[in-house]
Write a protein that binds this DNA or RNA. Sequence first.
DNA 1: AAAAAATACACAAAAAATTTATGACGCATT
DNA 2: AATGCGTCATAAATTTTTTGTGTATTTTTT
Lengths: 227, 227
Amino acid sequence: MIYMLEDEEGIRNFVIYALRSSGMEAEGFETPSALREAMSEELPELLLLDRMLPEEDGLDVLKNLRSAPETRKLPVIMLTAKGTELDKVEGLDSGADDYIAKPFGTMELISRIKALLRRASDAPAESEKLEAGGLCVYPSRHEVIADGTMVTLTLKEYDLLLMLLRHQGEVFSRESLLREIWGYDFAGESRTVDVHIRTLRQKLGSCGEVIQTIRGVGYKAGDGAVD
Amino acid sequence: MIYMLEDEEGIRNFVIYALRSSGMEAEGFETPSALREAMSEELPELLLLDRMLPEEDGLDVLKNLRSAPETRKLPVIMLTAKGTELDKVEGLDSGADDYIAKPFGTMELISRIKALLRRASDAPAESEKLEAGGLCVYPSRHEVIADGTMVTLTLKEYDLLLMLLRHQGEVFSRESLLREIWGYDFAGESRTVDVHIRTLRQKLGSCGEVIQTIRGVGYKAGDGAVD
DNA sequence: AAAAAATACACAAAAAATTTATGACGCATT
DNA sequence: AATGCGTCATAAATTTTTTGTGTATTTTTT
């Protein structure tokens, strides 16, 4: 179970929905007191904590948690507004286990949550490797091999490919890709996705075919025919 | 197995995680009594000991250890707050085998632990030698040869190079480099890394190309081809 | 069923935004 | 005084987004 303390309803709903879609149990709270009440009932495995809250600073909430024995070890990810402390690497002194800058995409959120849960449970880091068609992606190296040759992708191209490959066969609408990768408050056109898909296919050469267009719906990646 | 006695939760988690990531078994303890209890079960190969503890001084803990026959020779690294010159002397005098000033980076921590374990087990110093491109780094000599000529690097430059070369092909974000090399509570800008990368590349001359910039992600070192 | 209209997508190139490299400065240490 | 280090402002490089157009595909109309 994952708890989230965030005063903005939009973001809260977005995150809770994203987490549940990823198969996690999640519950959101608007105020520190609501969170505290819930925590007295059931402790979450991980807490997402907004740094800026109207009444009480997120750091204070965190401090309180750290001073109570039952929540001392609770994994906490702090959500901070971009620009504020983003450039600064906050010390671990403040007690958060990780930080995410707003606005974040689902992809980043999920991967950080998983990373922290993994860390907390003392499991070894998985060195992922994704394959499809003649494609091979090494996340830790940020490298993509297409038909034996290495191709250089920009960040968005890379993220798109990763997203599609991690869910092979699944179709993603442009909107959901925007939310996953660009973040919840991206204001641009959905055609932006098209453009990146195009450059991505181009760079992948013949392997670009693993990315299929589902007309009227979106895109998906897959080795072979499914339907 | 490595034990650590440290009252601050954040630092303890950070260290334990770092050690386990490096393939060592590690366990952290918050209080001297918790440590003692564990030590009565199993003796560690090495102990990381915080100098400043709320209840009992780290030095006293150490003295006790040294006075007991089964822990007399236990390798101990003392963790001391930065700046206090006295700690250095006292720490070594009182029987610590090494000391590390807080805040330390993962790199320094690991290398000192390994050094001490090596010393304690009386094994010969491993003469590591890292190569990539026309580059050659001899950690034991703290020497770097680029294209046949020796170059003099400053500490940060050297650490950066070592870090990257020890994990060739792997991408490091600026944040993780700061944590590894600068220490866990470095509060500066992540751009600082850029600057050192620049001077490093400069000094390496044509070999500087082994350090690649992964736009939007970080840096990595590598010859090129993967496998 | 064929033609026309409407969509949806691909492609290209310019414009905007972001990220990184560079040069210079100040501070601290030696 | 010299060196190492961190920060800043600015320049350079590259990515990202927008925009315009053409083409394929689907839907609607006849």
